[in-house]
Simulated assay, not measured.
Amino acid sequence: MSDTTSISSPAVQRVTDHLRALNHPHAPRMLEDAARTAQQAADALGVALGQIAKSIVFRRKSDGVAVLVVTSGDLRVDEKKVQAIVCTDGGKLGRADAEFVKSATGFSIGGVSPLAHATPVVTLIDAELFRFDEIWAAAGHPHAVFRLTPAQLRELTGAPVHAVTTESTER
């Protein structure tokens, strides 16, 4: 890994600035190879798949707001559980395509950070991340990640913690 100077990315700089403003002790790091999937990130970092805080984006159909779920890389998000939490009006969640993800978060799929978004998003943190003392999240680019604890993720995002994964895992 190297520092963020090895790639010039406004998105990574936005995450870096956000982390710095919140006094987070770990700056983004650049991986030699892209980590567009949780497995690629885990392999590059030499950590367990579950330690990768993957960002899954949905679109709330009632108002078009992005819903970001941050969960462990070894688990699948249960869309019905998320929908019950964020669609209190009985509305539905929809899939978010790459264009929507980019316009709502300011990040491309494979590099969606849990913070420093282009527009306000509804964020949920999956309780299963708290199985780990240390996790890694995307930092605005498929090559960029940053280290944190689940508690720091909650503090940095202000997001609530919920059980939003399915019973089966991808382990």
Rank of each mutant, 00 (worst) to 15 (best):
H26Y: 00
A151E: 05
R131L: 15
C87N: 09
L31K: 07
V15T: 04
A48C: 02
R29W: 12
R20E: 12
L75I: 14
V77Y: 01
Q39C: 02
V47T: 10
A66M: 07
G106C: 02
Q13R: 01
S108H: 12
E32T: 15
D3S: 09
D89H: 13
F58V: 14
L22F: 10
F146G: 05
T166N: 10
P150C: 01
V161G: 02
D43A: 13
A163S: 10
G158E: 08
D97N: 03
A163I: 02
T4S: 04
R76K: 13
G64T: 00
F107Q: 04
S9A: 02
P28Q: 07
K80M: 07
R171C: 07
D97K: 15
G64S: 08
T5G: 07
I135Y: 03
A34L: 05
F132H: 01
G110A: 06
V86H: 00
P150K: 05
V57K: 09
A144M: 15
A42C: 15
S8M: 11
Q39I: 11
I125H: 15
L124K: 05
S108K: 12
P114E: 01
I56R: 08
M30I: 04
A151S: 12
F130K: 01
L115R: 03
V65H: 13
A27D: 14
P120F: 05
V121R: 11
T37Y: 11
E79H: 13
D63T: 09
A98W: 11
A35T: 10
K54I: 02
D133G: 11
F107E: 01
L45A: 04
K54Y: 10
H117S: 07
K92Q: 15
V145H: 12
A98V: 14
S168I: 11
H141N: 12
Q13W: 10
V121T: 13
V101H: 08
S72K: 07
R59Q: 14
E32P: 00
T166A: 07
S103G: 07
A11L: 00
E167M: 05
F146S: 00
D78S: 15
S6M: 07
G50H: 13
G91E: 02
A84K: 10
H24L: 13
A41Q: 01
G94S: 15
P142H: 06
V82E: 03
D3H: 13
P150N: 11
L148R: 13
A144W: 08
Q40R: 14
E99A: 03
T169D: 10
T169N: 14
P160H: 08
L153P: 13
A98I: 10
A27G: 11
E170G: 07
F132L: 00
V12K: 02
L129D: 04
D3T: 12
K80N: 08
D17C: 06
R154V: 00
E128C: 08
T105M: 01
G64V: 06
G106P: 03
P150A: 10
A96T: 09
E134R: 09
A34P: 14
V70D: 05
S108D: 07
A159N: 15
V77Q: 02
E128M: 09
K81R: 15
V164F: 15
R60F: 10
Q13G: 01
C87S: 14
P10C: 03
H26K: 03
V161Y: 05
I85S: 08
D126Q: 03
R76C: 09
H141A: 03
A53C: 02
